[in-house]
């Protein structure tokens, strides 16, 4: 079971969204981490045969996925980032319809829909119209449809966007539950999502992978060191300008800062253990201001 991406490139008119990416994915949960516009969605669309690559190829167990066509899609579950429903379908109808185009037999589909409605907690609203669902409920319906066909390959594009913290935890647990013996690729710019569940992390920036590896590998390879220090207020402003600052907080003793730097920013700096958030800042530092969930990062 191997999904191999070779020199994959996708160019839109003037932007290269995915730039010569290569990697091999097998069973496990992969966290695709990157800021807005990194090319996550474009990569995933190609993995779902929705977009033809400009160059390069994707193979599943050696066969080109675009040649496999339906045989490949049979293995696929996809939750798009920004997706719509048939607004006047009930949740149940919606899932039954998707089950039918996924090739499930009606009787199997009925059972599967019942199971999934319970699993994602939508059973009480099964006959409610899709357009009347809350954002979180819609996303759960989206996850349910992705799982209908017991996909071997599950691709989730920012599945936790718009979920409240409770939902987000529920969702993480759900993914952990189902991730056994599957390939799960999920994209996010929310670090905590993958901190708990991803076995491998793919750091993506400007259409390319900056770094890939397990959390431990990535943490060990951090290009900078994490320091903490307490400095007088006047000095803090200066440090903010010169360094990537992961955290800043006023204390009675002065301003406590968490700083990423190759060398100690001030004499009294203490070396800290790096977390995934520090990694994010280290790689995507300059652009943290652009991300939606900046409160999660800083």
């Amino acid at each position: 079971m191997e999904l191999v991406i070779e020199n994959l490139t996708k160019t839109f008119k003037d932007t290269t969204a995915v730039n010569n990416i290569s990697c091999t994915l097998s069973t496990g949960v992969y966290g695709l981490l990157g800021v807005n516009g990194a090319g996550k969605t474009t990569l995933m669309r190609m993995l779902c045969t929705l977009l033809k690559p400009t160059a390069g190829r994707i193979t599943w167990n050696g066969a080109d996925i675009f040649t496999m066509d339906a045989d490949y899609r049979k293995l696929l579950g996809y939750l798009p980032q920004d997706f719509g429903f048939y607004p006047n379908f009930s949740v149940e109808d919606y899932l039954m319809y998707i089950a039918s185009i996924k090739g499930l037999r009606p009787a199997t589909a009925r059972q599967r829909v019942n199971t999934l409605l319970k699993q994602v907690g939508l059973d009480p609203v099964r006959s409610r119209k899709m357009r009347k669902l809350s954002g979180g409920m819609k996303r759960r319906a989206g996850i349910a449809q992705a799982l209908l066909n017991h996909p071997r390959i599950l691709i989730l594009d920012e599945p936790t966007a718009g979920l409240d913290p409770n939902e987000r935890i529920r969702f993480r647990n759900l993914i952990s539950e189902i991730s056994e013996d599957r390939l799960v690729l999920l994209s996010t710019h929310i670090v905590s999502d993958i901190e708990y569940i991803a076995s491998e992390i793919l750091l993506m920036k400007d259409g390319a992978f900056l770094h890939t590896g397990t959390q431990t590998e990535i943490l060990a390879d951090i290009p900078e060191t994490v320091w903490s220090c307490v400095v007088p207020k006047e000095q803090a402003a200066d440090l903010l300008r010169r360094y990537k600052v992961a955290n800043i907080r006023s204390t009675p003793e002065g301003t406590a800062m968490r700083i990423l730097s190759k060398t100690p920013p001030v004499m009294s700096s203490i070396r800290e253990k790096a977390t995934l958030e520090d990694i994010f800042l280290s790689y995507f530092g300059e652009r943290t201001g652009e991300t939606n969930d900046s409160d999660d990062i800083l």
């Binding site: 045969t49 339906a70 798009p80 719509g84 048939y86 996924k102 090739g103």
Partner: peptide, 17 residues
């Protein structure tokens, strides 16, 4: 309705559907 991403990623999406 932005339903195309799911539609075309299904087994029958580019055939029987």
């Amino acid at each position: 309705q932005k339903a195309d991403a799911i539609f075309f990623s299904t087994y029958h999406g580019r055939r029987r559907a």
